[in-house]
Design a protein around this nucleic acid. Structure first.
Lengths: 136, 136
DNA sequence: CACTAGTACTTTATCTGTTACAGTACTCGA
DNA sequence: TCGAGTACTGTAACAGATAAAGTACTAGTG
């Protein structure tokens, strides 16, 4: 589950937060890789740091995403040539990946507007929130 | 899957769009019910009309949401007293439901900002999108 | 009367992204 | 030697979404 250590609002339900973020992982990874090649754990840290530590994506989620992106040809991978420490698998976005990234960002902008519109329905409620003419 | 008949961007992947909207169904229903009591099919229509027909939530999804909301005590239900046509099950939001609605809207506002931040990482990429110092 | 479409509600099996958990491997500091 | 951190991999379980099938009722048409 996404962890947002300093947000009481979020911590009310990590499972709930995870569902709100579901489906964005691949696009987030593509965004990070648009900046430049990176290896798995570094991507994890980039995402965590980009939100000031407020949010992190679980490793299992990220590595599952890398596998999907590879399968779909949206990224390429190669092993780093480290002589020390753990071996690092680097990922590089492909042209197809860049196109999908931009498409997904567009889709997100539309979806964001839809959700805003739908959630604002409740803000339009009159005080007391009930219409006349209904059975108790 | 959510249907957005007139949006080519969205129709690229309904499954993708569904994942972006996942987790919002309960909150959307609570938003509609904050305006006043309503029956199942009417809620369906309210949501579809609020987006100009661009988006609809499948009936199976909505009725599953009603069940969850009932189970959690966020709404109450009663049968209408129709003498004609199909019987209608009306739903009314509870005080607990209103509280959860507001909490979820707050959570959404935070999540929206996070996603915007993370997806913008790709916008910061330099032309060509690669950093020096990495193996080809 | 029969049929179709729309309205209205219900249930089940399937799908899939997420992730807890377990595992492997390597380095560094106590 | 041990624990923590870095780094990668795989599996089983979870839960929201929904296709599909089902029930029931009305209105319009042939």
């Amino acid at each position: 589950m996404p962890e947002i250590p300093d947000s009481d609002t979020f911590l009310a339900s990590d499972a709930f937060a995870a569902d709100l973020l579901r489906g964005h992982t691949d696009t987030i990874v593509l965004a990070v890789l648009s900046q430049g090649e990176s290896y798995g754990f570094e991507i994890f840290k980039t995402i965590r740091d980009a939100t000031g530590g407020a949010y992190e994506i679980k490793e299992a989620t990220l590595y599952a995403s890398y596998r999907r992106l590879l399968k779909d040809g949206l990224v390429e991978a190669y092993w780093g040539d480290e002589t020390q420490g753990g071996r690092r698998k680097y990922y590089r976005i492909t042209d197809a990946g860049r196109a999908v990234y931009h498409d997904n960002v567009s889709a997100w902008e539309i979806t964001r507007g839809l959700i805003d519109t739908l959630l604002e329905l409740g803000k339009a409620a009159r005080p007391g929130g009930t219409r006349p003419g209904r059975r108790p």
